[in-house]
Measured scan of single mutants.
Amino acid sequence: LQLFIKTLTGKTFTVEMEPSDTIENLKAKIQDKEGIPPDQQRLIFAGKQLEDGRTLSDYNIQKESTLHLVL
């Protein structure tokens, strides 16, 4: 599923993930694309901070959802 990642600077980029992927996987993918170390990434969806060990489906993140990346 394609997700939109929006940064505080207003930049938006996309990543391609599976619902079974963990937040950790997502942070690694963001590191590949943007060079931001996972330990500096905080991801927010629907007002909640996402925890590394959980999956996208745990948070009911669907295709074309927008996640906010806070550094």
Rank of each mutant, 00 (worst) to 15 (best):
E16M: 14
T22Q: 05
L43C: 01
L1K: 04
D39A: 14
D58L: 02
K63C: 04
I61E: 03
T55Q: 11
M17V: 10
Q62V: 15
G47S: 06
T7M: 15
Q62E: 14
F45Y: 12
S65I: 05
D39F: 15
D58N: 06
Q49G: 06
Q40L: 11
E64F: 15
Q40R: 13
K27C: 01
T22A: 05
K48S: 07
K33S: 11
Q2S: 11
E64S: 09
H68P: 02
L69E: 01
E51N: 06
F4Q: 10
K6C: 05
L69R: 00
I61Y: 02
E18S: 10
L26F: 02
P37Q: 07
K33C: 04
T7G: 06
L50C: 03
T9Q: 14
N25K: 11
E64M: 11
I44M: 12
D52S: 07
K29A: 12
S65L: 04
T7A: 06
F4V: 09
Q41R: 01
L69N: 01
R54T: 07
D21P: 01
T14W: 09
S57P: 03
Y59G: 01
E34G: 07
I36P: 05
S65N: 08
G35Y: 03
F13Y: 06
R54P: 04
A28K: 12
L56G: 02
A28T: 13
I36F: 12
P19Y: 12
E64C: 05
G35T: 03
L26Q: 00
Q2W: 14
Q49E: 14
L8D: 14
L67S: 02
Q49P: 11
I44L: 09
K11D: 09
A46Y: 08
I23D: 00
F13A: 02
Q31L: 10
I36N: 03
S20W: 13
P37N: 08
V70G: 05
E18C: 05
L8A: 11
D58P: 00
Q31T: 12
T55I: 09
E24D: 10
L26W: 00
G53R: 08
L3K: 00
D21T: 06
N25T: 09
D32N: 08
G35F: 05
D52M: 06
T9N: 15
L43A: 01
L67F: 04
L26K: 00
E51W: 04
Q31I: 02
P37F: 06
Q2K: 08
L3S: 00
T7F: 14
L8N: 15
V15N: 00
